[in-house]
Amino acid sequence: MQLTVNGEPAELADDATVAELVAQRAPGHDRVAVARNGDVVPRSSWARTPLAPGDAVEVLAPTAGG
């Protein structure tokens, strides 16, 4: 399916979950947050949250900042 990940078009398996997307995009990060269509997806729900075509997903991680 086609969706948008961090502002860029992305192609994922039709049954992909948030957990699979995070594993693909942010391996090794231990403080990741995900927003799906603007709403937070809690870490505890990643594995059972399916993605849908057209979703806009943000996968965020810590960075330096004031």
Partner: peptide, 22 residues
């Protein structure tokens, strides 16, 4: 200590520099 949240970079690999910062 303050930190920010930003999009993970597609090429960041395993944690990258940000993972190390934490």
């Amino acid at each position: 200590v303050t930190v920010a949240l930003r999009r993970v970079e597609a090429s960041a690999g395993t944690g990258g520099a940000a993972g190390s910062m934490v």
